[in-house]
């Protein structure tokens, strides 16, 4: 497993994917507090004389957290989907499987190694993002709750694990990169859509993680609800990983 991890890291490093995750998150970590702080002023400026008709509330540090989470949930997830699917499907679409699978490589470890490599890279990027974001938020708003930012990053990372599992699942079940990306996006939209419905039984589904993050950082979360939400997300993630492994174990080059 160690050797596979080593080569998967090498792949990410040499194909510049290694740098994309931290760079994008640093950009988002810098832009989010700036946007939260100055968006009202930009809007007021662009509206000119009509600005007086609207009442813009003064920005607070909470706006910075929400902006950061929003950017992570959109832009950063798109980056994760595009790169994640590519990492899982690349060996198949590029025709590398005959040489790889003719070697004594354990297929379970092979797949888990890719998943773990990506996960760890994203986790480290999130931690870097957390530091940069915290620094900038403090610089701009004069205050920051490090624990809240850490919890935000951690809960978001659990959601990322699910998206990566969907990406891996799609890459195992579909032959082309485009199809796998589309299926992953469909999975992501499906998961997010659950937010729209307010059925009791849906409140622990993965799509509720964003709402729970907001509640956690506004100190209004119900701890058991958050824990159940995390557990359900991790169970679904695990299920997708198992299904992907099952498929890959029986994968036939034809």
């Amino acid at each position: 497993m160690k050797k596979l991890l080593k080569y998967d890291y090498q792949y990410l490093k040499r194909t510049s994917k290694f740098i994309i995750f931290p760079v994008v998150i640093i950009i988002l970590a810098v832009l989010s507090p700036l946007t939260a702080r100055y968006l009202n002023e930009i809007l007021a400026f662009s509206l000119g004389d009509q600005a007086g008709m609207f009442n813009f509330p003064d920005p607070v540090v909470f706006d910075s957290y929400v902006e950061y989470l929003s950017n992570l949930s959109d832009i950063y997830l798109y980056v994760i989907i595009f790169i994640g699917v590519g990492t899982f499907i690349n060996d198949k679409t590029k025709g590398l499987y005959p040489l790889i699978l003719s070697k004594p490589i354990n297929r379970v470890k092979y797949l888990l190694s890719k998943y773990m490599t990506l996960s760890s890279l994203i986790f480290v990027s999130l931690m870097v993002g957390m530091l940069v974001f915290s620094f900038y938020t403090y610089y701009i708003f004069g205050e920051v709750d490090l624990l809240n930012v850490f919890l935000l990053s951690l809960l978001y990372f659990i959601y990322v694990e699910l998206i990566l599992a969907i990406a891996m699942f799609s890459a195992m079940y579909f032959k082309s990169y485009i199809t796998a990306v589309m299926i992953t996006f469909a999975g992501y939209i499906l998961v997010s859509l659950i937010n729209v419905f307010s059925f009791e039984f849906l409140k622990y589904m993965p799509g509720m993680i964003s709402s729970n993050i907001i509640q956690v950082i506004s100190n209004s979360a119900s701890t058991p609800d958050v824990i159940y939400n995390v557990v359900v997300t991790l169970v679904i993630t695990g299920l997708l990983v198992v299904l992907s492994i099952t498929k890959f174990k029986k994968y036939d080059l034809n």
Binding site: Y11, K94, G95, L96, P98, L99, S102, K103, P104
Partner: peptide, 15 residues
């Protein structure tokens, strides 16, 4: 597979 060395018809390597 440890006993075998395989040469495919069109070998593809990580670029």
């Amino acid at each position: 597979k440890k006993l075998i060395g395989y040469v495919p018809d069109v070998p593809v390597f990580p670029s």
